[in-house]
């Protein structure tokens, strides 16, 4: 995949999650997808990841992936971003995260996401580990 194709795929994926468009997310996921998150150290399959996204959709009013910085390499992309979540009571929380994805034939085959659970529940702008 070219640099442009990888960048487009990254935006398509993150935009789809923002819109809660899980049909597009499913289309972006390769059938053999493995999704690893540092918080648990465990890998999810394609179906497990889609279930987690669908189940979590109602928990927030809005979730956006802002300030995206994307770098592409031969087999995939690195995305760094600010994930901003607005809960139903209007509270905004931001956390800074990154995602390393391996891609094949227009789909994501593997994702490793790095989040900081120490940031959960803190309002944007607050600092300190």
């Amino acid at each position: 995949m070219t640099d442009s194709e990888l960048r487009a795929l990254c935006h398509r994926f993150l935009d789809a999650i923002e819109r809660q468009d899980f049909e597009t997310v499913a289309d972006v996921y390769h059938p053999e997808l493995r999704f690893w998150v540092n918080l648990t150290g465990k890998e999810l399959s394609r179906d497990e990841s889609l279930s987690v996204l669908r189940e979590g959709a109602g928990r927030h009013r809005r979730r956006t992936y802002d300030d995206r910085t994307i770098n592409t390499f031969d087999t995939g992309f690195l995305a760094r971003y600010t994930c901003t979540v607005v809960t139903h009571d209007g509270t905004r929380t931001a956390l800074w995260a990154c995602l390393v994805a391996r891609c094949h034939e227009g789909r994501i085959v593997r994702m490793d996401e790095y989040l900081d659970s120490g940031k959960f529940g803190r309002p944007p702008g607050s600092t300190g580990g």
């Binding site: 540092n38 760094r80 990154c98 490793d112 900081d116 940031k119």
Partner: peptide, 23 residues
């Protein structure tokens, strides 16, 4: 588990972005 991102200038690291879980 750490994700370490480095931007390089003239063969040296000029900026690092490091991600890990403080939890």
């Amino acid at each position: 588990d750490v994700c370490f991102v480095a931007y390089v200038r003239d063969g040296m690291i000029s900026r690092i972005y490091e991600y890990f879980d403080t939890g």
